[in-house]
Design a binder for these strands. Structure first.
Lengths: 200, 200
DNA sequence: TGCCACTTGACACTGAGTGCCAGTTTGCGG
DNA sequence: CCGCAAACTGGCACTCAGTGTCAAGTGGCA
C-alpha cells in the first residue's frame, strides 16, 4: 500500500472513529458534521469526500462486509444447495458480529435513536436482500418462476434475519446469534404451520 | 365536520395533490417544498405544519391505512387464528390497493426514484411489521417464547409481502395482488422445503 | 529535481426543517 | 350580533446537510 493510500485510510478511520465517539457521547442528531470534521482534524468538505452522508459514517465497513458476503456466496462447492450456501455465509457473518460485539452493539444503539440512521440501515438491508436473491436463483438465465421464488424467499429471509438481529440486540448480544439465526432458517424452511396450525 | 376542519382537510389535500403532480412531472428531488407550497397557495411554513418532511407528503394516507388495518385486526371473530386474521386483513388491503391502482403505482414510481422516499417507506414498513407482530402474539401477557416467535414471523411475513408488492409493481399492477399475497402466505405457512428441498 | 495527478481547504450556495411572533380567521358564549 | 379566546397562517431568521468550484498543497514517478 502506497503512502497516499495509507493516509487516505487513516483519514477515513479517523473520521469514523471520531464520529462514533461523538455519537456515543451526545447522540447522532446532536452532533454536526463540522464537529466530526474538527475532531478528526480535517475540513468539513473532506468529510463528504469520504462519506456521502452523515448517516454513512455510522457504518464505515458496509461495503467490505457486503463484498465479503458476496465472495463467500461465490466460493461455494459446486452442487451445494443455494439456500444452504446462504445459510453458511450468514453463519459466518454471525460469527463476525459476535467477534465485534461491542462495536456492533454501539452502532445499533446509534441506529435505534435516530430515524435517519434507521432509514439508511434499511437501505443497506435492501442490498443484502438483493444479493441473497441473486444467490438463491434470481439470475438472468433462470426461469421466471424460479426468480420470483428466489426474490420472495430472500425477502422473507431478510425479514426474519432482521427480526432475530433485533432479538440479539435486545439481549445486548448475550444470546448465541448462530442459534438465533438457525431459528430464522428453520422458520423459513419448514414454515409456521408446525406450531401455528394454520386453519382451513 | 366544522368549517375549520374542512378547511384543514382541504389544505392538506391540496398540498398532497400538488406535490404528487409536481413529483410525477419532474421527479421528487427536482421539486422543492417552496414550489409545492406555492402550487397549493400556502406558505412554506404551512407545508411543514401538515407534513413533517418532504417525504411524508408522498404518503398522505399512511395513518389512515394503518389505522384501518389495526381496526380490522381487532374486529376479528373470537377464536380465529391470529395468523388467519392477519391474512384476511392483508387481503382486504390488497383489494384496496387494486382499487386505487393508478394512485398506488404513481406513488411507487416516486418511491423508486428517490432513496430518501424509499427510506421513509421502509420506516412505514417497520410500523406495519410491529402491528402484525402485536396481532400474532407479541403482547404483554403472552409467554416470552411466543412473543419472539410472533416477532420473527412478522418479520418474515413483512419481508415476503414487500417482495410480492415489488412483483406487483414490476408488472405495473397487472397481476392479481390477492393471488400474489396468497403465495407469500403459503411460503410462510409451509416453508421453502417443498421445492427447495433443503439439504442437511 | 521537476512535473503531473491526486488530495485538501475555503468559500459560496441551495434546500430541508425549526422557532418565533405578529396578524388573521373561526368557533362560541353572552 | 358582538367580542374574545383559540386555532391557524405567513413571514422572517436561523441551523445544518450536502454540492460545485477553484486555488493551494502533497505524494508518485520519471
Amino acid at each position: 500500500m502506497t503512502l497516499r493510500e495509507r493516509k487516505k485510510a487513516q483519514t477515513r478511520d479517523g473520521l469514523a472513529e471520531a464520529a462514533l465517539r461523538l455519537f456515543a457521547d451526545r447522540g447522532f442528531e446532536k452532533v454536526t458534521v463540522d464537529e466530526i470534521a474538527a475532531a478528526a482534524d480535517v475540513s468539513r468538505r473532506t468529510f463528504f469526500r469520504y462519506f456521502p452522508t452523515k448517516e454513512a459514517v455510522v457504518f464505515p465497513d458496509r461495503e467490505r462486509r457486503l463484498r465479503r458476503f458476496r465472495e463467500m456466496l461465490v466460493d461455494r462447492p459446486h452442487g451445494e444447495e443455494p439456500f444452504e450456501s446462504v445459510r453458511l455465509a450468514l453463519m459466518a457473518l454471525a460469527r463476525d458480529y459476535e467477534k465485534n460485539r461491542a462495536r456492533v452493539l454501539l452502532q445499533q444503539r446509534i441506529v435505534e435513536e435516530s430515524a435517519a440512521v434507521r432509514a439508511y440501515d434499511a437501505e443497506l438491508d435492501r442490498q443484502w436482500e438483493r444479493t441473497m436473491a441473486a444467490s438463491l436463483g434470481d439470475v438472468d438465465r433462470a426461469p421466471a418462476a424460479d426468480r420470483r421464488r428466489a426474490r420472495l424467499g430472500a425477502g422473507a429471509l431478510m425479514g426474519a434475519i432482521r427480526a432475530i438481529l433485533n432479538e440479539w440486540y435486545a439481549g445486548a448480544g448475550a444470546g448465541d446469534l448462530k442459534v438465533l439465526g438457525q431459528e430464522a432458517f428453520d422458520l423459513l424452511t419448514y414454515g409456521m404451520s408446525v406450531t401455528t396450525n394454520d386453519s382451513k
